[in-house]
Amino acid sequence: MEYFLQQLINGLTLGSIYGLIAIGYTMVFGIIGMVNFAHGDVFMLSTFIALIILMVLTQVIGITPLALALFIVLIAAMLLTSLWAWAIERLAYRPLRGSFRLAPLISAIGMSIFLSNLVQVTQGPRYKPAPTIASEVITLFQGADYSVTVSQKQILIVAVTAVLLAGFWYLVQFTAIGRAQRACEQDRKMAALLGVNVNATISLTFVLGAALAAVAGLMFMIYYGVVHFNDGFVPGVKAFTAAVLGGIGSLPGAVLGGLLIGLIETLWSAYFSIDYKDVATFSILAITLVFLPSGLLGKPEVEKV
């Protein structure tokens, strides 16, 4: 029981990271019907950006209150990652909008290869250690032979995720930005006729998705304590699985799916086999798409003849 509770805590932490990335997939798919293949690598890029900024702040400038430094890192990483996502959309996707359906997908795969290799070439192929942050462990309660603990960073991750998601929810649910987004989702042509700037709205969708991915990137960097150029693909596919499981296009679905994938992955590793944990995730992806293509919270699609 204690062991299970511990896995639950670990799973929720991991799940919040996946959920944050999944929102980027689900929003972009919702608005332009495209799997943004490079999103996982944008996330990976953000882990590097976050680590570099953190080191600049602590080692070069010497900001001592760690909380302040982390806050600056969060904002700066969100902005810089968003700039990357904006540029990618502008240069590699927008010219292909409304063209051959496969073209943007191939372009996105190319972008994904480009990004991971750019980081490999410029930062080197080795794992980069990050400074240990907020690693003090709090014992929640002591079991007979197993104690349930939660680390500061786990609390930090879940708390930051919750706060940012609340803000994000407000943004897309109650502001003009969100309205424009939903209008474009329904009917891009009509939205344009009614005066919505469709291009700007789509750009903004990429930017918001990347900003949340950057939050996830910082959390990932703090949680695992290392960053690696190849850490975009697998977390990316897992987050995409989360988006599909929750019902692609649905924002609450993405978060729910993220938490579920985090839990499943942790519990699978804890009780079955850590070697096959990725097989489990990929199987869930395949099973969901085959048997429940509209996901848990998505809208079913009826074939039109």
């Binding site: 240069l91 590699a92 292909l96 191939i106 372009s107 190319g110 972008m111 290869i113 480009f114 290799n117």
Partner: peptide
């Protein structure tokens, strides 16, 4: 591979 990825994007454009 960096150039390969870039070439994929450019050929598509």
């Amino acid at each position: 591979m960096l150039l390969f990825g870039l070439a994929m994007v450019l050929v598509m454009l």
